[in-house]
Design a binder for these strands. Structure first.
Lengths: 244, 244
DNA sequence: CGAGCCATTGACGACTCTCAAGAATAGTGG
DNA sequence: CCACTATTCTTGAGAGTCGTCAATGGCTCG
């Protein structure tokens, strides 16, 4: 087992992005809508459906027994969530804004998958991707400072914003500062202070609440510490050698 | 995408444990040996094989550009590592003691999988499990104190030790304190101090370096935060309520 | 316009890291 | 078998980062 954690009985995963052909499976499902603050499902619910996000943004939360909340990820258009081999969801998924999504029962999702080897491969591949992302986040949480965490997060959001058709230097943040804090393992105050500091250094400008302007991307990358492979300006498919 | 991290080009996974039928695939592979400190493979190596651990213990490491090291997991007998959809490994795997393992080329691993739907399902299931474990670790790193982290870690190792046939209250630790620290996102000093503190409270006894005796499992669970409901009882009848 | 949420900013304190030294253990060679 | 060395672990003192508590300000919405 990768980590030494005790969760022998659970096998759930996760949220899958950019799900190539997989999204096609949902084509015949009706579109459902959700307003900000509402959940697609809750932690502990019986896991009977798989969902595809079509519009809007969501957060994936887990609750600790003492009330602490952790955000393990964010979702947006094109992501799939709820894929699972267990019968209960391990996390809640909550809308950050107006969301449109489609659903498929796990049973029919499985059936389609059996019939389509290409999609099975896509799913497997996306699952591997998912693990890599989770491990990246582990590294981030393991040993990065508040500034490094925030810079890494902002760069990731920048890429996401751009790939969804935004300006090349504008970060769109559908989530609140508190969400960011819960995602990065920080407090809202630290997130706020760090943003202020970066703004003071002329690296970015955060006039609006949900929009951050990147002024010096290179500085941001430097402070993110090891952007590793994606250090460069991405977007093109050129894979660079990652040596350390 | 679950996390907002930027790793669009990588899809690797992970280490799979308790790999039901999957282990059978390696039956015809010769057994290879490795002594402590040696690697099965390094981060950045071309990913051409999948490996099954037969004996001994290993650690999974990632290196940051500035030299910081993170341990993302530990492996032992029955675990599979190297499953990947990318052509380079994202982490190193290094022996903690004398290790015996077998290998299979990715190509033949894939071939076998195509022929065996049951194994495909097992793999998918294990991948989901893997993600769940990684997310548990994210939660731990996100918002748990040093004491909570260590207690959770020790409980997991206890379970692992017991399931491998050890005494019900003895934790076997094949790794060093530094490894534990790098796994939990702490320093070696903090790990050491925390163990000393727990020993001072009569919760455990750590006379030997690689062996910890659990004296009050219930207290350990309580301090792990969210070990949740499974009541203690533990080892002796005298279960005392321990508040923090 | 007031209520409520969200974000910012400040002061303070605690937890953990850093630096440093010493003790215990393991490994090596005589 | 016993020094001798190297590594690992423990313990201490001090510092720094980040969390906690608290107050203020800005935005949104009824």
């Amino acid at each position: 087992m990768l980590a030494t954690n005790v969760r022998p009985l659970f096998e759930e995963a996760p949220a899958l992005s950019d799900c190539s052909g997989l999204l096609g499976l949902f084509d015949r499902s009706p579109i459902e809508h959700l307003s900000a603050g509402r959940n697609i499902f809750f932690e502990g619910d019986r896991a009977e459906h798989v969902f595809a996000v079509r519009e809007g943004n969501l957060r994936i939360c887990r609750q600790l027994h003492d009330g602490r909340r952790v955000i393990t990820g964010f979702l947006s258009s094109g992501d799939i969530v709820g894929v699972s081999f267990q019968n209960r969801y391990l996390h809640s998924v909550e809308a950050l804004d107006n969301v449109a999504f489609q659903r498929l029962t796990k049973v029919s999702f499985d059936k389609e998958l059996i019939a389509r080897p290409d999609l099975r491969h896509a799913l497997l591949s996306k699952l591997c991707d998912e693990v890599a992302v989770a491990q990246d986040q582990m590294v981030l949480l393991s040993c990065k400072s508040a500034e490094e965490r925030l810079c890494a997060f902002l760069l990731a959001r920048l890429q996401s914003s751009v790939s969804q058709g935004g300006e090349p230097n504008v970060i769109w943040l559908p989530m609140t500062r508190l969400d960011i804090a819960h995602y990065l393992g920080l407090t809202i105050e630290t997130v706020s202070r760090t943003i202020t500091k970066l703004a003071g250094q002329g690296i970015l400008s955060a006039d609006r609440r949900h929009e951050i302007l990147v002024l010096r991307k290179a500085a941001l990358q430097q402070r993110a510490g090891e952007g590793s492979a994606e250090a460069d300006d991405s977007l093109d498919g050129t894979v660079r050698h990652v040596r350390l």
